[in-house]
């Protein structure tokens, strides 16, 4: 039995026992998607439902997104990044800790659909995976891809692949990867202002302002999002590049010190924008200035809710 199958088995067993034991009213996990390379969110409310739960390398969505405002007791199938988000949700009063059961899945990385499409541009009808490879089939062809070649970039620098604060882990811990050293950003920062601005403008030039990134993000639980404000209207409704830029900058600022690099936003983007680039600039700043990483403790205080009298800020004259 492959490791993935073992994890699926464990998730189902635990999900059933949680529902049967009344520790959870619903288990939020994944089932096999209706399209290839996709695991869909699934709400298991009965032990029978649990048999549909699966674990795969296509579980890119962050299910912590379903926690805010929920009243039932939730068992959350969570990767390392998702679990940290769930912890953040608790700290931000979006979901009570005592109702939450984090069913942690030590994660070996999730597959990037865009990377797959780059390697296999033909239409894909089915995808099957083993622990280290993916078999794609389409009209008249079949391709094997090595999984490590098509993992999402955030998965390649994940320092917390094993959930840190899970109520239970469904499998053995997986080793941490060297954390994001932001070397690409550092290289970018060495370039001129003009070049950087061009880079970031190009990055978002295809943005449709569909807000799929926002909708996929578990941090974006605001009752009214600034993009929908009318008094005042923060953001024009057109696709003026400056409005689009403003959207991405403010979205980044709102996630600063809270983003766990789960990549759900990039997964959701229909035009494959690396929207997390803005978050990464801020992640880097948060880490460098305040040595802060979100979601590692229940009582952490996000960096914008506290201060040090001597916070270094040499740029302030």
């Amino acid at each position: 039995m492959s490791n993935l199958d073992t994890l699926t088995q464990k998730i189902r067993e635990k999900a059933k026992s949680l529902l049967e034991g009344g520790q959870a009213d619903v288990v939020i996990g994944y089932r096999t998607g209706t399209v290839p390379l996709m695991a869909a969110p699934f709400f298991a409310r009965t032990p029978q439902d649990c048999d549909q739960l699966v674990w795969s390398s296509f579980a890119r969505l962050n299910l912590a997104n379903y926690l805010p405002g929920r009243t039932e007791k939730v068992a959350l199938v969570a990767k390392g990044c998702d679990a940290r988000n769930a912890v953040g949700q608790v700290a931000e009063n979006q979901y009570p800790k005592d109702k939450l059961f984090i069913l942690g899945v030590p994660c070996s990385g999730q597959v990037d659909a865009a990377k797959v499409a780059a390697k296999e541009p033909r239409p894909i009808q089915t995808s099957e995976e083993t622990d280290d490879s993916i078999k794609l089939t389409g009209p008249g062809y079949s391709t094997d891809l090595k999984k490590e070649d098509v993992l999402r970039r955030n998965c390649l620098t994940c320092a917390h692949r094993t959930p840190t604060l899970a109520n239970e882990l469904v499998g053995p811990e997986v080793p941490s990867l060297p954390t994001d050293d932001f070397s690409d950003l550092t290289a970018l920062l060495a370039k001129s202002s003009e070049e950087r601005l061009t880079y970031f403008k190009d990055l978002i030039k295809d943005c449709l302002r569909c807000y799929a990134c926002r909708n996929a993000c578990p941090l974006c639980y605001c009752p009214v999002c600034f993009v929908d404000e009318t008094r005042p209207q923060w953001l024009g409704k057109s696709t003026d590049p400056m409005d689009t830029m403003t959207f991405h900058l403010l979205r980044g600022l709102h996630c600063a010190g809270r983003c766990t690099a789960c990549g759900a936003c990039e997964t959701a983007c229909p035009v494959n924008i690396k929207v997390r680039e803005f978050n990464r600039v801020l992640d880097k700043t948060v880490k460098e200035n305040w040595s802060y990483e979100p979601g590692l403790a229940w009582d952490q205080k996000p960096p914008l809710t506290v201060y040090q009298p001597n916070d270094p800020a040499d740029f302030i004259k």
Partner: peptide, 24 residues
């Protein structure tokens, strides 16, 4: 402490805008 909290926001905003290529 208003300006202490403000300073943290400024640190983020300043870095963000500078990084994306707004002339400091």
């Amino acid at each position: 402490a208003g300006n202490y909290y403000a300073r943290r926001k400024f640190i983020l905003l300043h870095t963000l805008l500078e990084s994306i290529g707004v002339d400091p």
